[in-house]
Design a protein around this nucleic acid. Structure first.
Lengths: 250, 250
DNA sequence: TTAATAGTGTCTATGAGACACTATATC
DNA sequence: GATATAGTGTCTCATAGACACTATTAA
């Protein structure tokens, strides 16, 4: 008998233990060449004073909408203001172990967000409690959020391989070196500049030239780099694979 | 303010509209060289008489456990009997649009299951209402289950590329031709026998030889094929990519 | 002037895919 | 014997990665 069929035999809302559904967001961005995640400090028990992923109840809205609302609330961005519209959001996975929240049964639908570099969440707003932290400095998190973050990082690293989502971390116009810095920050390893350059330009639809050149070169010299914008590809073919470590495979 | 923090200010279960959480399973298998999905016929309203994915309420258990329980109930298999243990289960994604169930807010965590060829669900058991149907004959489904099935098929096709999960569709010992038939059924296209054979053997940890040879060749002749079992790889490197269609990329 | 970077050229090893071929089995 | 299959050999083309090199810019 399916759950839906059970409804037909007279569903009594009070007959079941109450459950809640929340969304939690692993929002990633790159600042100063390092991968950061958006966190909030919890005010109350349990886990008072701990850091946690931003999240909240799903209201009368879809899951995607709830996740976007959470990102907006915690970053201080508003829909339609441009920057929030550039945030890439996708569902990560759901977590529902009994006991993951000590108070009641809470199911969390986790989302993964890729954002271009954003200002600090504004003081004096709802977002005042949120902040960006380098992912390699994140210690313990409330609830099972450390596991959610780890899953989000895995997904992000993998997504850079076969989708053009690295472009979600940079501005609308960017240099190949900026794009390479995204890969380096997310993967945690340097990439060969020459080979990366050729590869990025050779994958159809990954980037397209703006015809423009940056006004200045880097701080330590070099030619002025050309500017590109994101292309129309949804998948990278051939993929931009990271060096495979044997231990990942077995 | 996060959902968890709101709890602290005095959570009143009756203050929120009741929500339910179910699991729905896209269980796939291969019969007679064709990809099949496990369906149930709904007995009651809404969608009475429609086909639906098997699923039900999450009880006092984790999400994975709930999904495994549903698969067991609808296939008639029991934990520990062997066949159910060979079923590969992974979370697909969650669905929570308001209105996806006309009666109340229902969040569904969908799972994807890969099963070796199984007997028809046993008559006279809970599983009597379930049946395997070729995926290309599935018409409309109840609720948003058609979209869930489509997402599951996408995931399955993609998973065959970079994981050894094709081995979850065959017996513990199998021939390379059987493995190739899995790819052909899931991807919906024939593969070059010679190239597939060499590729399957060359990917480290994909398959390992049993040293045995099948007792009989195929019905239409040929040498007796060697038998293999699944290897210890969790990822295929290099991946076994399907031919790319340009329209998938843009 | 120094030093770093953008961008390109080239070489090699690897893998995908097309095609061909032999040996072996069933009907 | 006719025919299909298992398994292997070989050739070509595309790609990843190593390395080298030139031109250009900031400090």
């Amino acid at each position: 008998m399916t759950g839906e069929e059970e409804f037909l035999e007279g569903y009594d809302p009070g007959a079941y233990a109450p459950v809640a559904v929340t969304v939690d967001v692993v929002a990633l961005t790159i600042r100063d060449g390092r991968l950061h995640v958006l966190l909030v400090e919890r005010g109350g028990h349990p886990y008072a004073g701990w850091n946690a992923l931003p999240g909240g109840f799903v209201q009368q809205e879809g899951l995607d909408a709830a996740a976007l609302r959470e990102v907006g609330e915690e970053t201080g961005l508003r829909p339609g203001e441009g920057e929030l519209d550039r945030v890439h959001l996708e569902q990560l996975r759901s977590y529902g172990d009994p006991g993951r929240d000590p108070r009641m049964r809470v199911f969390s639908v986790a989302y993964l967000a890729f954002a271009p570099s954003l200002p600090d969440p504004r003081a004096g707003t709802d977002a005042a409690g949120a902040f960006w932290m380098p992912v390699d400095e994140v210690g313990e998190l409330a609830f099972d959020h450390a596991a959610i973050l780890a899953d989000g990082l895995d997904r992000a690293r993998s997504k850079l391989e076969y989708t053009p989502l690295a472009t979600a971390f940079v501005g609308t116009e960017f240099t190949i070196a900026e794009l390479r810095a995204v890969y380096a920050a997310v993967w945690g390893e340097e990439l060969h500049p020459g080979n990366f350059h050729r590869k990025a330009l050779s994958v159809p639809g990954f980037v397209e030239s703006t015809g423009e050149t940056a006004a200045r070169a880097g701080e330590r010299g070099g030619p002025k780099p050309k500017l590109y914008r994101a292309g129309d590809a949804r998948l990278l073919h051939p993929a931009l694979l990271r060096p495979t470590r044997e231990e990942d495979v077995r």
